[in-house]
Design a binder for these strands. Sequence first.
DNA 1: ATGCTGACAGGAG
DNA 2: ACTCCTGCCAGCA
Length: 117
Amino acid sequence: MGRSEKALELVYPAGFFGEVYRIAAGIPTGKVATYGQIAAMLASPRSARVVGWAMRACPEGLNIPCHRVVNKAGELAPDHVFGGAEVQRAYLLAEGVTFLDDGRIDMKRCMWMPSGA
DNA sequence: ATGCTGACAGGAG
DNA sequence: ACTCCTGCCAGCA
């Protein structure tokens, strides 16, 4: 592996959290992924909560777009994190994510589909 | 070691 | 569509 990859090995935590961060880092701009979706990618479809927890512990130094990870209903994180859901929504809007009239993300349009459409 | 917690999800009523 | 209940599993006291 190249030097940059080795650097990532050093930066990303080992184990489940590290895998979560690695995947989250791959979410393209303008798209969002769900906790359960990421859990499924890790072959642990029952670990959605752990994914959410990993996001909460999100190391800011890694440049992880944790605002692009939402629940399956397309709802943003509660106000006690992120400095308010408004902040998260502003980030997503700036990236081109579209919202429905009820304030939820238009998941049908913006959910990340790594395996192709 | 034991028990509680949580940025979730799926099924049942 | 909404609420309630249960399963999950890594950290932390």
